[in-house]
Design a protein around this nucleic acid. Structure first.
Lengths: 208, 208
DNA sequence: GTCGGAACTTGACACCTGTCAAGGCGCACG
DNA sequence: CGTGCGCCTTGACAGGTGTCAAGTTCCGAC
């Protein structure tokens, strides 16, 4: 694309820098939450000055929206491999449950941040659009998983996407809260629960 | 109890005043959320000065914990009548679904506040205890409803209390978000969903 | 080499926050 | 009629916030 010389097109470097700042900011946001993470605190916990943050992001809202969107873009693709590679229903359920428990353990603070932002979006109109958008991504993600699961089982989903998402999101959130409160067994309980619940979310296909 | 004279025991008046301040504060908290509702804003939206708030509550945390606890104490008893009076499974489901849709419409800001505080409790340790306590109340509330429903149907709950709560809480939260975003159909959808889902939450009783 | 603009630092502004202390009001009691 | 005490108002303090502008450094282009 661009020349192989040392200088890159400014747009690339600009985006790269934004990403680096946002990545660092996301860590602080995940630890302190949306409200208590000030721009200075975010800058102090990184290699950037508080001025450079404002140089690359219009304001705090701009930064947070960028962080959450980036964060969830990755999160939503986490199960693509399982969906694509599973050859049996059980394999898919196990893969899904394991990934779920794994992200719950390894990326707990990122999930806390998401639920925090989504809660705030009910009070701040400026957050509403991005929250709606990401909720849509997550609903589609769940739908891909369940409908593929049904397909492998020669069945079809028994509930609409929004309901499946609401149920699994609620259970995941409860597990996240339990983990945050120090209840370590929540990981295994969530895994087992997924095994128990997914079969009840499909029904024999009418066609074929 | 106390004498019928004009003067009441000071403890009563103190509690009454706390309740009055908290009731007004809860309105502001429900509109602005936990983070953006400052003590001054709370006082301005009420008949009290910002000093008197601090006279009756040790600090902001004390006030908010009092508000949320009071709020949820009422919320948790909302379905007691339905549980006690229903004579058939259908009557209970209809009563439950109607109450659910009603509180979603009439007390939306109170529910927003609760989810906000619960999210914050994942970042602020001081909120964790009260959030855990209230989650317990809600789980028991759901359990009373579903187990009574099963009883009326000559069946028993098919899932443990924590799972039932997680599912219904997730769906309620989705409906709350939808309402907040202006999707008015969410009320009827929630009602219908409860009718569809509750029968799947019980199974024929093994005993008898 | 030097010019110019992009990238960044620093410091400041105006505002808002929780908290508290000094003072005034009114009312029941002696 | 004082007078003491609970109740409340007002004003202030110290600290933190988002935002921005002036200045500095750096590096490629001519």
């Amino acid at each position: 694309m661009a020349s192989a010389s040392g200088r890159r097109p400014p747009a690339d470097k600009y985006d790269e820098r934004r990403r680096a700042i946002a990545e660092s900011a996301t860590r602080t946001l995940g630890e302190l939450g949306y409200a208590r993470a000030s721009l200075r605190e975010i800058a102090n916990n990184s290699d950037f000055s508080h001025g450079v943050v404002h140089y690359y992001f219009k304001d705090k809202h701009d930064l947070i929206v960028y962080c959450v969107r980036e964060l969830k873009t990755v999160c939503v693709r986490r199960y693509d491999g399982v969906v694509a590679d599973s050859r049996t229903p059980d394999e898919l359920v196990t893969g899904f449950a394991d990934e779920l428990a794994d992200t719950l353990k390894e990326e707990a603070s990122m999930h806390r941040l998401w639920y925090d932002v989504r809660s705030q979006s009910m009070f701040e109109e400026r957050l509403r659009d991005v929250a709606t958008e990401i909720d849509g991504w997550l609903e589609q993600m769940i739908w891909r998983i369940v409908s593929r699961y049904a397909e492998l089982a020669g069945a079809e989903p028994a509930l609409p996407p929004s309901v499946l998402y609401g149920i699994l999101d609620g259970l995941f959130q409860q597990a996240l809260i339990a983990v945050t409160r120090g209840h370590d067994g929540a990981l295994d309980e969530l895994r087992e629960l997924v095994h128990q619940l997914l079969p009840t979310m499909i029904r024999p296909s009418l066609t074929t």
